[in-house]
């Protein structure tokens, strides 16, 4: 289902500003992401990409500006706040617990407890339910793993990242933010994660993708947000622009001709 850009954005930010001392990391930056799209954010180092993302996922608080979740203003004081609001973040490579198995990783921090006394009083976890749910979920994402009981360290790098992505997808209700999800992966490995991201988008969950990898960005993204000098320079349609155009725009080598001016 293609994204409908006439609806209310799932996340919208207006005029976010953030100073670090005298340095302006975000300078009245706007942002929006719609249901059913993959929005890539590209930008040179220091353009404010990660500051923008941290503001959206609650890791830092903007000095001014406003964030709206489905049209309603929100204030995230911590990543936990954002997560409780349905925003999940996938980090580069810190996200999994290698000695724990796939099911345990998927449910880490959100374990399902046994019904009744065993769960309420003894806080016993419900292994069986968690295993069935994670098997079904992985199958629905077309993510092939034979045995949910193997420890994550025995998986390949791509599969590991896949587990991290799947975990976020399982619990995200509004949006998933992915920070360089393929940065540490080889070609074949990346492919698996890219397919997974597309699968998540097709289920209707918007994905915000931060990446330096232009081929990945141009392959996946429905729209590309170009960040430059703390502001949104433009939003481009990757089908109408070349990668070199995008790079020229984000480095300032080229100015906007007919990109969607913002």
């Amino acid at each position: 289902m293609p994204a409908d850009y006439t609806t209310t954005p799932v996340i919208e930010a207006r005029s976010l500003t953030k100073y670090f001392g005298h340095v302006v990391a975000l300078d009245r930056c706007d942002f929006e992401v719609y249901a059913g799209e993959i929005l890539a954010i590209i930008g040179d180092n220091g353009a404010g990409k990660s500051t923008l993302i941290k503001a959206l996922c609650g890791a830092l608080q903007p000095d001014s500006g406003q964030i709206f979740l489905e049209g309603k203003p929100v204030h995230f004081r911590s990543p936990m706040d954002a997560r409780n609001a349905g925003i999940e973040t996938v980090y580069q490579n810190l996200a999994v617990s290698p000695a724990l198995n796939i099911t345990e990783n998927l449910f880490l921090g959100r374990e399902v407890l046994r019904p009744g006394f065993l769960g309420r009083v003894l806080r016993m976890i419900d292994r069986k339910t968690m295993r069935t749910q994670s098997e079904e979920f992985m199958k629905s994402l077309k993510f092939r793993i034979q045995d949910m009981n193997v420890s994550v360290e025995s998986l390949s790098g791509g599969q590991r990242q896949g587990v991290a992505v799947a975990r976020s997808a399982a619990f995200a209700r509004k949006v998933i933010i992915m920070d360089e999800p393929t940065a540490a992966l080889g070609v074949k490995e990346s492919r698996m994660v890219l397919d997974l991201i597309r699968e998540i988008r097709d289920r209707g969950l918007p994905v915000i993708l931060i990446s330096h990898n232009m081929p990945h960005v141009f392959e996946l993204a429905d729209r590309v947000h170009i960040q430059r000098l703390g502001r949104r320079l433009a939003i481009i349609d990757p089908k109408q622009y070349s990668m070199s155009d995008a790079v020229a725009l984000m480095t300032g080598a080229k100015t906007l001709a007919n990109a969607e001016q913002v």
């Binding site: 990543p79 936990m80 980090y91 996200a95 999994v96 880490l108 921090g109």
Partner: peptide, 8 residues
């Protein structure tokens, strides 16, 4: 770090 990130 992973434990903290998932909210433990």
């Amino acid at each position: 770090e992973a434990a903290a990130l998932v909210g433990i």
